[in-house]
Design a protein around this nucleic acid. Sequence first.
DNA 1: TTTATATACCTTGACAGGCGATGTATCTTG
DNA 2: CAAGATACATCGCCTGTCAAGGTATATAAA
Lengths: 128, 128
Amino acid sequence: MPPGEAAAVEWGDSMSIASDLMRGNTEMILLARLMKKESYGYEINKVIQAATGGQLELKEATLYGAFCRLEAVGHIVSYWGDETTGARRRYYRITPAGRQAFAQSRAEWEQARRLIDKLIAQEGENHD
Amino acid sequence: MPPGEAAAVEWGDSMSIASDLMRGNTEMILLARLMKKESYGYEINKVIQAATGGQLELKEATLYGAFCRLEAVGHIVSYWGDETTGARRRYYRITPAGRQAFAQSRAEWEQARRLIDKLIAQEGENHD
DNA sequence: TTTATATACCTTGACAGGCGATGTATCTTG
DNA sequence: CAAGATACATCGCCTGTCAAGGTATATAAA
């Protein structure tokens, strides 16, 4: 690792508790991207990697599994792009129900985040 | 629900995405309690409920499963209390390795939290 | 030409943590 | 005596993530 480069949170490798930390947030993160613009799986994953400085990369099985669940409950819809060159792309668009679900997810995340932060606060620790 | 009472995050019921949000944080939360003082399962769960105003309650199967894992990897040790009355209690004490693991977990949690918050930030949302 | 790399999607089986359900035992309160 | 609180434990299920493998097209290097 080049000096000065931060250690990535390697989702899925031995030193990572992180895939459990991500659990339940994957769909929210995807919806967040689709709030900004409709897009397709491969690009969304690249954008997430770029936005986090390479610290977060969704695995393909996780990514497509999440898209599948989101479409099944009507939070997104998909359609094939009309690319005349290169690999085909399946585009996703968020639905009104998806926007609502995102708002709800964000609220639940913020509540959970507050609770966890409260429970691991350092005041009063016993160092015997 | 009485007016003015906040809706609890009901871990495990139908409207709750929350048990997935908790995944991977259970052990950290238990270690956080044991940093403050050694204690036993039932009490720890009550303290967690009190500290979160009833918003978070670990299920017993979750609680004891987590203690079991923590002990298996040497992050806590357990011993039977010497109660002469009432139900027996299994007490837990955090080990030096457990303190180290907690510090690491907290760092990973904070990193994950930052990443998630960044990815769901609202700037630039597209409301077409 | 062949090979490798990037783009782009999909599926299968295994794994692990959380949960509902159930069981045990003791003590207190009505 | 029945009910509820205290206190611990276990079983099997469910679900999201992952490793591994597969398909196909385009471009760059050998």
